[in-house]
């Protein structure tokens, strides 16, 4: 399968391969959309997550809130954001965590966002 998007820096395109890899991880995350499930997860995190036959790596990343790793392992942001919301983290705070910018992220957005210049190709991110 051709993946012309693999040279975009700092970006995990949620394609068919990622979706296949992340299926149970994403279904776990989206289950937290419902309050009843959030209560069950809160009462017994490990027991709850073990209903979803994901890989050990995905399981650890979910329990340890490793937001970028979750995406790399097949998670999709609309799904992982439900896990973040469970932890009281909103979309903008989540972006602050994924970019490593923390509170500075919001200021960047108010200032017009991340420029496209220097951010189109992996080769432009030399230190990555």
């Amino acid at each position: 399968m051709s993946k012309p998007y693999s040279d975009i820096p700092g970006t995990i395109v949620f394609d068919s391969d990622q979706a296949a890899e992340g299926y149970y991880l994403n279904q776990f995350c989206i289950s937290l959309r419902l309050a009843d499930n959030r209560e069950l997860f809160r009462a017994d995190p490990e027991g709850y997550i073990d209903q979803y036959p994901m890989t050990a790596g995905q399981r650890n990343a979910a329990l340890n809130q490793e937001w970028n790793l979750l995406l790399e392992l097949g998670g999709n942001i609309y799904y992982t954001s439900k896990l973040a919301a469970y932890h009281g983290i909103n979309f903008q705070q989540l972006a602050g965590l994924m970019t490593g910018m923390g509170e500075d992220y919001r200021a960047m957005m108010v200032g017009g966002g991340r420029s496209i210049e220097g951010n189109r190709y992996q080769s432009e991110w030399e230190d990555e």
Binding site: P9, T99, M109, G113
Partner: peptide
């Protein structure tokens, strides 16, 4: 872009 390290991308010209 909502995800990973390039989150926050905006391209007003585009």
């Amino acid at each position: 872009q909502l995800q990973h390290k390039r989150a926050g991308l905006i391209n007003a010209e585009w």
